[in-house]
Design a protein around this nucleic acid. Structure first.
Lengths: 247, 247
DNA sequence: CGCCCTTTTGAGGCATTTCAAACATTGTGG
DNA sequence: CCACAATGTTTGAAATGCCTCAAAAGGGCG
């Protein structure tokens, strides 16, 4: 019922209980000690505080230790599009590597702690520690996969299927982190879910009501209980709308 | 008028006229020679031939030398979603780094040549050649940015704005490659454009007609001439539909 | 020339949006 | 501790952009 994952501040990576869940996972004790010299464990960000903004110069890569964040894009014409929700263990800021400036903004959804590794150190260390380089690349590749999946949701799925997929994604990510996969708190508002899924807030609200009415989930404000994972999966893959748009 | 970019097969990277446009761009002659020992210049793929398929084991990273490809996702329920169109200089296959298997399929849109670098060699070389590592990471980060932009298109823009943005993106990419930014051939069908933009083929057809009728572009089968870049940009950023879905 | 596939055009339908308003929740200052 | 404001959520009704269905028109190719 409590999906708050905590990554308490550690004196260094060697002692961090989460060093096996982040990009340090392949490192031997020596490597961990080496990495540890450059990692800063950063104090809590409060709800609404930003870790970086679109356009900021790249200075470090970040790893969430506790809490949650979202990243979003500001388009020229002033509208926003959320591109990801991040949970403990997730890496942030990599997209800035392309041009040296952040292409997204990152904001805390709740009280959030994180680690920072100066980017030039990452580069230097990666050359010495192939395991680190590989994990950074894996994290980057995972992000590509996740964003591809987001495109698939927006491109091929109906609004109900999008919300169901979203809940299943959260479920899976909480399970991976040792939390319940059937009962968790949403750290984002309906508005934020709506934006991420590219539907109107009202639609999200109606869909939550529908899912509850159909006995698939129980929702109380931000607490979600999945009553039937298979039923939710059925909604998520409902191809009602998406017939032949294949190329 | 001719947007066919050719990257002729070179005996090695040292002689390749495109080595400054790919991930080798930072390498000195010694590094280039080193890289060259592991790069395979691969012969043409014909229209419809696949470079790799979703699920294939990761064996190499690829760089396009000529022609064009698209990558797409197959969802469980049998529908496809194109996630990218690739042109000479673009890297393919990186998403497979996450799990060791390709998460997308890549198919040639026309006769296409490419280079292959065995992935384990990339890892080994990157440790020795920081410039190479950095460029691989930059390419990965660029892919993340491009996919984020795709999400923004699908999430916030109307069908006309999506098509206009798509044409502007192509325009920009051709310009970067030394081709005309106002006149080029589409290497993909209407169906493939429709799938990428997540609209119906009929809509794409209607939109092409409309844009032509309004004097913004001239279309003849797959040949596109942009008559007014500013007008196209105006269509691309038309926020008619996308008012308040911000979070 | 005739078949096949892609593209185009038209008409009607529907999922989702937009607009409008009630309702609940959280935070704040007196 | 309670009103009040501000924000977030829910519900209803009408509007609409895009899709679906149907069919004609336009190349490409043997």
């Amino acid at each position: 019922m409590n999906n708050v994952v905590s990554f308490p501040s550690a004196a260094n990576c060697t002692n961090c209980r989460w060093s096996r869940a982040c990009i340090a996972r392949d490192l031997d004790p020596a490597g961990l000690a080496e990495l540890s010299r450059y990692v800063t464990h950063c104090g809590p960000l409060e709800h609404g505080e930003r870790l970086f903004r679109q356009g900021d110069k790249l200075s470090a890569l970040y790893l969430l230790r506790s809490g949650s964040m979202k990243t979003y894009l500001d388009s020229e014409d002033g509208c926003e599009q959320s591109v990801a929700f991040l949970f403990p263990g997730d890496m942030l800021g990599f997209d800035a590597v392309a041009i040296g400036h952040h292409a997204t903004s990152a904001v805390a959804l709740e009280t959030t702690a994180y680690c920072a590794i100066p980017y030039d150190r990452v580069i230097g260390l990666a050359a010495k520690l192939p395991g680190l380089m590989h994990q950074v690349m894996r994290a980057a590749a995972s992000q590509i996969m996740a964003t591809h999946d987001h495109v698939l949701q927006l491109g091929q799925k109906s609004a109900p299927a999008r919300l169901a997929s979203f809940l299943l994604d959260l479920s899976h990510r909480f399970e991976t982190r040792g939390c319940s996969k059937t009962e968790f708190n949403l750290s984002m508002s309906r508005q934020e879910i709506a934006n991420y899924l590219a539907v109107a807030v009202e639609t999200i609200s109606r869909l939550f009501t529908d899912l509850q009415r159909r006995g698939v989930i129980v929702v109380d404000r931000r607490l979600v209980k999945i009553q039937s994972l298979p039923a939710l999966q059925a909604v998520a893959s409902d191809s009602t709308l998406l017939q032949e748009r294949s190329a």
